[in-house]
Design a protein around this nucleic acid. Structure first.
Lengths: 127, 127
DNA sequence: CATGGTTCTGCCAATGATTCGCAAATTATA
DNA sequence: TATAATTTGCGAATCATTGGCAGAACCATG
């Protein structure tokens, strides 16, 4: 029991996420599937996205409107810089943040949990 | 037209927010009102919280479950460091972030919009 | 302190994203 | 192909949030 089946819907959903390198909501993935003539139910989209996150293959965030969005990530230890213009997700290594982490601790006695941060701005292309 | 009435419900809601220095959802504010024997409807809580945000007297964020939460802020130009343990909100001035902003631009060509960041960790008291 | 126009509130129905239950379909394996 | 486990699709249920609207509260004025 508890095996793992490779199914067509799952592969189609992963495909969509891999091709778009930005945070997508379940509804957006669902629409993309329809455009691609893939018959997958919205329920399956929700379940599959959540499953990808649980396995660590995707990371999720709640956007400004409170909707859950997902993106496939490639490296393991990093944070996301999200472009406000195109939605592009830049994976930021932990290293360049250490200076800031130290400053925050010195100024405020605040110890940063470096695993839950995201940054917004404009990426190199959109500037 | 477009005047502004000082009402009991509004004052009671602001009172709650001022006494708790952490992000509260509409439902939490509503429960706090009930504990204080204040008869205010949930609709009014939603409207008032949104109104405070629009006036810049409170700032809001969407939590991990997608619920909108609100906190009163005192200074104008800052970001929030949120304690994972007690929920305490530390207001972080922009200054200590400039180093980090520069590094992000140098490494990734990413220009940070310094007005939409939040940091999580453990505050001085909870460490 | 009564009046009247404006602004707020409470109630309740509507919305929209997400989850749940369950029967039918799909997958892996023999 | 037969079987058992897993996954899917459908529709109903849930839950935070919003909208409409009639009545209540507010406050400047007479």
């Amino acid at each position: 029991m508890c095996a793992e089946y490779a199914t067509r819907p799952r592969e189609q959903i992963a495909q969509i996420l891999r091709s778009e390198r930005r945070y997508l909501s379940a509804a957006e993935v669902f629409r993309a599937l329809q455009r691609a003539r893939a018959r997958v139910s919205l329920s399956t989209v929700y379940r599959t996205l959540d499953r990808l996150r649980a396995k660590g293959e995707a990371s999720s965030r709640i956007d400004e409107q409170g909707e859950a969005t997902y993106v496939i990530c490639t490296t393991s230890h990093h944070h996301h810089a999200i472009c406000r213009v195109c939605g592009h997700v830049e994976e930021v290594a932990c290293d360049p943040m250490e200076r800031f982490t130290e400053a925050l601790k010195a100024y405020h006695g605040f110890e940063l949990d470096a695993h839950a941060m995201e940054f917004f701005g404009r990426c190199a292309r959109c500037r």
